[in-house]
Nucleic acid binder design. Structure first.
Lengths: 221, 221
DNA sequence: GGGCGCCTGAAAACATCCTGAAGATCGAAT
DNA sequence: ATTCGATCTTCAGGATGTTTTCAGGCGCCC
């Protein structure tokens, strides 16, 4: 399994690289975002570890572009000590996992293992959970084999769910993650879109947890 | 591991911060409750140390809100010397541990270690006790392997118990922790919900301590 | 046996969620 | 510029599930 490490501090690079290699992974490294994005294109990168405190391109931008090209590659984000704000909660959406510096090697390796385990199979920029497959290339979903076209919002919403199957997301969380800002006061957009998704995907794929939020059914699909 | 310290006295802040950092923790600080709550939202805070004598929001309120958002994060409460009354009993409920001022650094660090050890492992925010597992991410409980769906209130109540297995909670305490205010006069909501939980989890998981309150069976699950 | 606390089924009160449809917005093509 | 179509958001009524209250019965402890 090949891991791409995008990190500018030499100390951390060698620290992490050694750990990854002794765990049997092949390691590519890049010291800035542009470089990292280039390397990430090559489709034999199975996982990306991305420092958010990079010089040049801001980490969020790197993450966004990476997602555009390789939507399903797992990304573990490293956040610097002072960059910790509530943004991290947001990033969590685009990223699959994160580690806060200083982190232990064990901790990081555990996360790498966990991520490689779940992605593993699915090459080809698609994610699947609970019988639903999301094809990021074509903005298309497949439900039990048959194709379903989704609008941009529908797709974004489903993407959040499918990246964290089984996890419950509250309405404010989803507004934050999919719509990007707080809506004035009360809005029921989320409900409406969940309703639409249900019509397209089948009623029981997305469960509502009353008083809490919504959740995508099933873990393996 | 990242620790959030919510404390207004500058002296204590620097004292504690230094200790935590030299123990290898990342430290975030906030000088009032509102600020603290904001920082605590970010999901990379692994433990919260909370002074109860804060200006602005009363400490109990901070604790309650924190619990609503991050139900499984361990909280260590600091109480002023003269505030030690039977309040501590209440606090002890929502908090996982407490230290009374003046406290020694060693004492506090020991408690931090103890708390991080028990939570630490389980990312994915899940706690277990007495054969019952509470998955905070998925809002599901598992009893001896089989999944059990809980309503919001049921979940909140069980969360209190599972965070302090073996500890007895009185009815007023539970009303405070789960419902948030004193109910006018007498209400038996707690009894009703305990009854419902028993039906779902099995009758002997929650024991009645006559004249005192309720307690969750077992320590390790 | 009497008093008190506890349990639990069911109804009432309440909150949340669903969904069809209308209005608003955006983008592309003419 | 204007028109058209698609998508996005708001609105409102009805459907569904949850929370609370109530009341009768059970069992413990003195």
């Amino acid at each position: 399994m090949a891991v791409l490490l995008v990190e500018d501090e030499a100390g951390i690079v060698s620290f992490v690289q050694r750990g990854l290699e002794s765990a049997g992974h092949q390691v590519l490294t890049a010291s800035d975002g542009v470089d990292g994005l280039m390397l990430a294109q090559s489709s034999d990168v199975d996982l990306v570890i991305l420092d958010l405190g990079l010089p040049g391109l801001p980490g969020e931008e790197v993450l966004r572009r990476l997602r555009r090209r390789r939507p399903s590659v797992p990304v573990i984000v490293l956040t610097a000590k002072d960059a910790v704000s509530d943004r991290v909660a947001n990033l969590d959406a685009g990223a699959d996992d994160y580690a806060v510096k200083p982190f232990s090697l064990n901790e990081l390796l555990a996360r790498v293992r966990a991520r490689l385990r779940t992605s593993g199979q699915e090459r080809g920029d698609a994610l699947a959970a609970g019988g639903v497959t999301l094809d990021f290339g074509g903005h298309v979903a497949h439900v039990d084999g048959t194709a379903v076209t989704l609008s941009a919002r529908e797709f974004a919403l489903l993407a959040v769910f499918i990246r964290h199957p089984g996890q419950v997301f509250s309405r404010p969380q989803l507004l934050d993650l999919v719509w990007g800002y707080d809506f004035e006061g009360a809005s029921n957009v989320v409900e409406v879109y969940v309703s639409q998704l249900r019509r397209k995907l089948g009623a029981d794929r997305i469960q509502t947890v009353r008083g809490v939020g919504y959740r995508l059914n099933g873990g393996q699909g």
